[in-house]
Amino acid sequence: EIHIRTNGEEQARKVYKMLAKRNYDVKIEQHNGQWVVTAS
C-alpha cells in the first residue's frame, strides 16, 4: 500500500488520476487538513 501526502486538493487529484490509470485502487483522505492519497 502506498501513502502519498500532498499539499492540496489539486495535487491530490493529479496523483489520484495518475495512480488510477495504473489500475491501483485509490482513495483520497484528509488527515489534519492534509490530503493523503492511498493506493493499493
Rank of each mutant, 00 (worst) to 15 (best):
Y16I: 07
Q11L: 11
N32P: 02
K21C: 15
E9L: 15
A20F: 06
E1V: 14
A12V: 01
E9D: 03
V15I: 15
N32I: 03
N7R: 11
V26W: 02
N23V: 04
A39K: 03
T38E: 03
I2M: 06
K27L: 05
T6G: 03
Q30G: 04
G33I: 01
K27R: 10
I2H: 05
I2R: 04
Y24W: 12
E1I: 15
R13M: 08
I2E: 02
V26L: 03
V36A: 04
L19Y: 05
M18V: 08
Y16T: 04
S40Y: 10
E29T: 11
W35S: 00
A20D: 04
V26K: 01
I28M: 10
Y24F: 11
E29K: 07
K14T: 05
I4Y: 12
K14N: 05
H3I: 15
N32K: 06
Y24A: 05
A39Y: 13
N32F: 06
G33N: 06
S40G: 06
I4E: 01
A39S: 05
T6R: 04
A12S: 02
M18K: 09
V15P: 00
T6F: 15
A12I: 02
I2A: 02
V37H: 00
D25V: 13
V36T: 06
V36F: 12
V15D: 02
S40R: 13
I28L: 08
D25M: 13
L19A: 02
E1G: 09
K17L: 12
E1N: 09
E29M: 10
V26E: 00
K14V: 05
Y16G: 15
R13L: 10
A12Q: 01
K21I: 10
I28Q: 01
A20W: 05
Q30C: 15
K17R: 10
N7A: 12
T6E: 02
N32V: 03
Y16E: 11
K21Q: 13
K17D: 15
V36D: 03
K17Y: 09
Q11N: 06
E1T: 14
V36R: 04
V37K: 00
G8F: 14
A12P: 00
K14W: 13
A12K: 01
Q34C: 12
E9M: 08
Q34K: 08
D25T: 13
M18F: 14
A12T: 02
E9V: 10
Y16W: 05
G33L: 03
R22N: 09
W35T: 01
V37P: 00
N7P: 06
V15Q: 02
W35Q: 00
V26R: 01
R5P: 05
R13T: 05
R13E: 05
D25I: 13
A12R: 01
V37W: 00
V36M: 06
K21F: 07
R13K: 12
I28F: 03
Q11E: 13
R22W: 15
H3N: 08
N7F: 12
Q11R: 07
H31P: 02
E10T: 09
E10N: 08
I4K: 02
M18D: 12
M18I: 11
I28V: 06
Y16L: 08
E10Y: 08
H31E: 11
A39L: 14
Y24Q: 05
G33Q: 03
V37D: 00
G33D: 06
V26M: 02
